[in-house]
Design a protein around this nucleic acid. Sequence first.
DNA 1: GTATCGATGATCT
DNA 2: GATCATCGATACC
Length: 215
Amino acid sequence: MTQFRGDTLPAAPLIMAASSLNPGFFTRPADLVARELIGCSLLFHGVGGVIVETEAYDEQDPASHSARGPTARNRSMFGAPGHAYLYRSYGLHWCFNIVCGVRPGAAVLVRALQPVFEIAAMRQRRGDGRDAKLCAGPGRLCAALGLDGAFDGYDLSQPPFALLPSTGSQHVLTGPRIGISRAVDVPWRFGLAGSPCLSRPFGRSGRLPQVSASP
DNA sequence: GTATCGATGATCT
DNA sequence: GATCATCGATACC
C-alpha cells in the first residue's frame, strides 16, 4: 500500500447527478473549449478527477499535429467533436486529447487532473509519489487512468468515459504551451490558479485568458 | 529548487 | 535521418 505523505489536495467537488457536457460545448474554438474544460471532471472506468490543465491546438496552428492535414496518426482529430484523440509521445507515453473546434482538425490536450475518484487505482498504476502528481502531465494522466491508443476515437459521452460539467466558475491562468518548438508564443495553455496538481507552474507570464472571438 | 540527459519508437521529411 | 504536444533519474545549487 502506498504511503500517503501528507500532501493536501483541494477539496473534492460535489458531483450532483450524472449530467454530461452538451455536445455543442465542443463545436467552438479550441482555445475557448480548453479554457472552459478547466473545472470539469474526466472519468475513465470511474477513475479520474477534475481537469486542472489543458492546451488548445487547431488546424491553422503550426504546432498542431493537424497542421499538414489528415494522416494515419491524427485521423481522429478530423473526426467528430467530443471524441478522443490518443497518440503516443516519444515512443513511450500516451497523450489524451478531446476533439473539438468549429472546423475539423482541432483538439484540446488534457495535461493534468486533480485526482478525486478511485485514487487508490491511480496509485497502483503509477507507483509511489505524491497524490497531487499522479496525473500532473499528459503521460502521467494516461498512465494513472490506464488510457492508451485502444481508445482513440471513442465517444467521450459514453462509457467507459464520462465528462462532467464544472460545478462553478474557476480562476484560470494562461501561458505558452509546453514542449513545442513552433508557435511558442501562442498562449494556449490553461490552468487552474493555485492548483498543486499542475504539470508545471504558470510563471510570471501567467495571465487571465484572452479567448478568441466567435468565428 | 533548476539543468541536463537517456529511454524509445512512430511519424514525417 | 530528424523530430518529437514526455518522464524520471541524476547532478548540482
